[in-house]
C-alpha cells in the first residue's frame, strides 16, 4: 500500500490586482496553478512549468517572478499582480498593451501576459532602456511566433512616449 500523504492545508491571504484573496491551499499547490485553476484567472498562462518559458510571469511585491516557481503559500501576506492589473476596470488597454498591438508585438498571444508584466517591471527601473537592454530583458521569455522584433519596438516606443509624456499609441 502506498503511504497516504495527508499534509494539511494552509490558510493564506494576499492582495491580487488590488483586491484581497483569502483561501486554503495545499503547500504543494503552485502559485500559477492556484491563480488559474482555483481562482479561474485565465490571464495566467502556464507554459513549461519549470521556470524557462516565462509565460506565467507575474509581479510579486512589484518584482517580476515566475509563478510556476512559487507556491501559493508563499504569497501569504504579499501582493500579486497579473496582466489584468494593466487595463482599466472598463477594459481599456494601457499604453504598453496598445503599443504591442500597434507594433505587432504578439501573434498567438500565449507568451504576452508574462512579457507585459516583465516589461512593466523593467520600465519602472529602467525608464530609458537601449534596444540591447530590452532584448536582454526579453531573453527571459520564449515567443515562438513573432521573432521578438515587434515587441522590442513596442517596449522602446512605450518608454519613449512615457518619457515624452504622451501615450505611445496616439
Amino acid at each position: 500500500m502506498p503511504e497516504l500523504k495527508t499534509i494539511g492545508r494552509k490558510s493564506i491571504s494576499f492582495v491580487l490586482n488590488g483586491k484581497p484573496v483569502v483561501a486554503e491551499v495545499e503547500p504543494r499547490m503552485l502559485l500559477s496553478d492556484f491563480l488559474r485553476q482555483e481562482l479561474g484567472r485565465t490571464d495566467i498562462h502556464v507554459g513549461c512549468e519549470h521556470g524557462v518559458c516565462g509565460a506565467c510571469t507575474i509581479r510579486f511585491d512589484g518584482r517580476p517572478a515566475r509563478s510556476c516557481l512559487m507556491f501559493a503559500v508563499q504569497a501569504d501576506g504579499h501582493r500579486v499582480d497579473t496582466v489584468e492589473s494593466l487595463a482599466t476596470q472598463e477594459g481599456a488597454l494601457n499604453d504598453l498593451q496598445r503599443a504591442f498591438r500597434t507594433h505587432h508585438g504578439l501573434q498567438c498571444g500565449y507568451c504576452t501576459p508574462g512579457i507585459l508584466m516583465s516589461a512593466e517591471a523593467y520600465l519602472e527601473g529602467h525608464p530609458d532602456p537601449s534596444e540591447a537592454e530590452v532584448r536582454e530583458m526579453l531573453s527571459g521569455h520564449l515567443c515562438r511566433c513573432t521573432g521578438y522584433v515587434g515587441m522590442v519596438r513596442a517596449i522602446l516606443a512605450t518608454a519613449k512616449a512615457r518619457k515624452d509624456g504622451k501615450a505611445a499609441a496616439e
Binding site: 521556470g51 516565462g54 510571469t57 510579486f60 518584482r63 517580476p64 517572478a65 515566475r66 516557481l69 512559487m70 516583465s118 517591471a121 523593467y122 536582454e136 530583458m137 531573453s139 527571459g140 521569455h141
Partner: peptide, 12 residues
Amino acid sequence: MPHIGHFQTRSR
C-alpha cells in the same frame, strides 16, 4: 552577475 539567468529569475 548579468550572466546569471534572467531579469525575471534574478529578482527572486
